[in-house]
């Protein structure tokens, strides 16, 4: 599982590198800007750069199996003593690690720039934990759909699945945001301000971990019945 996860991160090193350029931008602004005066702009940029990674986790998760099947590299991997569920676990861990690398870099930069502007550094890291949990769940949902759909449809289905609870939380009741807590976790990041940097609410983080396990189990069940040597389309 660790081998497959490490291999996934290695194969995705260029997209991860491109993502990290956004963090570099924030770091650059931290160097040249008058931090106390521009702190609201920096926080806005921090939040914007932070939520990109959730979209990328869907991209990573939705395309992982497809890319491996299309290149036929999956055959050499699954011809070894690797069970399908182990393979999927490796991919979930790989997607989470890829996003965690980004979040770690963003956390470091955020601690420096926002910390200097008065934002609690511990809260920056809590927000990063929320982001990693959101990415892990979003990536796993995308991975589940990608076991039987092509990446575009898998991304669409994932957006729908994550979007419906979010819409319901906005229109019906806030509790709907916890059905699939990606939106709840993302909102924790987006709604943080210098005055109210957010509450350390661990419930959605724990829920995201549990739901990740549930979606992984469903994905493993579906994937065990899929003919992987046949073209996806």
């Amino acid at each position: 599982m660790l081998l497959i996860a490490f291999n996934f991160v290695r194969e995705q090193r260029w997209p991860i590198f491109v993502l990290l350029l956004w963090v570099l931008l924030l770091a650059f602004l931290g160097l040249v800007a008058d931090i106390p005066r521009m702190r609201e702009d920096l926080l806005f940029l921090f939040k914007q750069v932070a939520v990109y990674v959730v979209a990328f986790s869907i991209f990573f998760g939705g395309s992982a199996i497809y890319n491996e099947r299309k290149s036929r590299r999956i055959l050499a991997v699954l011809s070894k003593a690797v069970r399908r569920e182990q393979y999927l676990s490796g991919l979930v861990l790989g997607v989470t690690t890829a996003c965690a690398i980004y979040c770690f870099a963003l956390g470091l930069t955020g601690s420096w720039t926002l910390g200097a502007a008065g934002f609690p550094v511990s809260q920056v890291w809590f927000l990063m934990v929320c982001l990693v949990a959101a990415c892990m769940l979003a990536g796993t949902v995308a991975l589940m759909f990608s076991t039987f759909l092509n990446p575009f449809l898998a991304a669409g289905a994932t957006a729908l699945m994550l979007g419906v609870p979010w819409i319901a939380s906005q229109t019906v009741a806030a509790g709907w945001g916890y059905v699939i807590p990606v939106s709840a976790l993302t909102n924790t990041v987006l709604k943080s301000t210098f005055k109210v940097p957010g509450h350390n609410e661990w419930f959605p983080v724990g829920l995201a971990v549990l739901e990740t396990l549930a979606f992984w189990a469903v994905a493993a069940r579906i994937f065990s019945r899929v003919d992987i040597a046949v073209a996806v389309e």
Binding site: S71, R72, R73, A76
Partner: peptide, 9 residues
Amino acid sequence: FLAENVALY
């Protein structure tokens, strides 16, 4: 196992 048109990392 060696697949036809083998692809490697």
